[in-house]
Design a protein around this nucleic acid. Structure first.
Lengths: 234, 234
DNA sequence: CGGCTACTTGACATCTATCAACCGGGGTGG
DNA sequence: CCACCCCGGTTGATAGATGTCAAGTAGCCG
């Protein structure tokens, strides 16, 4: 069984043994079953969470019941910035997830006392900001087809970075169509139709667990939005 | 003449005299005329900029010439996070602007050495992230009318915070329609039409320098997207 | 005065949302 | 064990909103 994977992933390759140990000392491992809510928008953020294993859907609820998915967190990500004392969005488990739970006040004290960790936190915030801004580009300028295509490529790249090599050419899509749609600012029917259209173009195949990409990026390379903006999602 | 306003604005009310002095020691005041480009996406970020006076348009260029405006920076904002060694987007002056220019390496050294400043930087990153995520909500779920309405209210609130009280009920819009459109993921014709429609509903008046709001927020209060997400843009 | 630029307005095309039917798998209960 | 139901997903028809193309107006500066 893996324990407290998050600290190692968060600190990255240049891991400093001390800060790693300090983080782990504060962490307690927790588990959430598929679909469970980890925290909800507006709640007091007594705890901070770091993701060790699995996928977490980060989203904001609109008053009419719609969702905007802000991101899909992967192992190594914080679920929200530990600074604010209130959760600014909700987080649900997509599939089963393992988390590190921290007392936010303890974590904050540790981070503030460690320039190293503080810097890592800024870098994390930076990556989150980059991702959000790339997403703004996509939602502001992309057709449904571009949104889906770029999402798939970006998602595959992110997965590849985390899970080393899942070897198979199939890109798993454990989230539901509805969630993909809510991430891309589309309706689930449109996502479904767009998958179908891309399949007809022979650039991907839809399989029950996800999709397999067969030339999607080449199609995209000829397009207006530089893929470089999206390849680097962390 | 005002000098080096940025450090005081960035440090905020709880300004620590020491960190303030240190920041000012590194800053040199620079001026850009209307429409001038301060830096461009992809350039090496030898300098970091803090905005003292005026408005700066932050945007990404798409390869086909379209722009996505990411934000309109106001006095007190950094133009991009000082961490990364490369500019991730471009910045143009909207009207005349005064900036503080820092050597990025010097600034970084100062910030890393000062837990106080580091924390302020994280808080700044947090605000930027919040704004970007609120924008994602808007682009993902809002009709043209909602986007324009929420933009206007959010813009007015941000201006009010910076310029104390511009007293008049007119909200100045020094940026062009094209920029508003690029910010909202719309075309400039759509923005123009939406202004016209809102004017017909008697919730605003279009004047040469901007708009005056006459009941727009009440209209919005009845809508699905909670305005609270947008009122707080910093 | 003339031309440029920003903006507005109009007619029409295109794309996505909406509403609705249908398919298929997994689980439940008879 | 089978039938049924429920849920997620796909597909179809239609409507509504925004984009596109084009003309026209107003203010500004030379």
């Amino acid at each position: 069984m893996q324990r407290a994977l998050f600290p190692a992933l968060f600190c990255g390759a240049g891991a400093n043994a001390l800060e790693l140990r300090q983080l782990q000392a504060l962490a307690s491992d927790v588990y959430f079953g598929s679909g469970k809510t980890i925290f909800s928008e507006g709640e007091l953020a007594d705890n901070a969470f770091g993701l060790s294993r699995g996928i977490v859907r980060i989203y904001k609820r609109l008053s009419d019941g719609r969702h905007q998915v802000l991101s899909f967190a992967l192992a190594g990500d914080f679920l929200g910035m530990p600074l604010s004392d209130q959760h600014k969005y909700s987080a649900d488990a997509v599939g089963e997830v393992s988390l590190c739970r921290f007392s936010r006040s303890e974590l904050l004290r540790l981070i503030v006392s460690s320039p190293n960790l503080m810097r890592r936190l800024i870098e994390f915030a930076n990556r989150e900001l980059d991702m959000a801004q790339a997403q703004l580009l996509l939602l502001g300028n992309g057709s449904a087809e571009k949104r889906v295509a770029i999402f798939l490529i970006s998602w595959r790249n992110r997965l590849a970075r985390v899970s080393a090599s899942s070897s198979s050419k199939i890109v798993p899509l454990p989230m539901r169509r509805r969630d993909i749609a809510a991430f891309l600012g589309l309706k689930l029917e449109t996502v479904s139709r767009t998958f179908a259209r891309l399949e007809e173009k022979n650039v991907l195949r839809v399989v029950p667990e996800g999709v397999s990409l067969t030339g999607l990026e080449e199609t995209l390379a000829a397009e207006e939005i530089p893929a470089s903006h999206f390849a680097g999602h962390t």
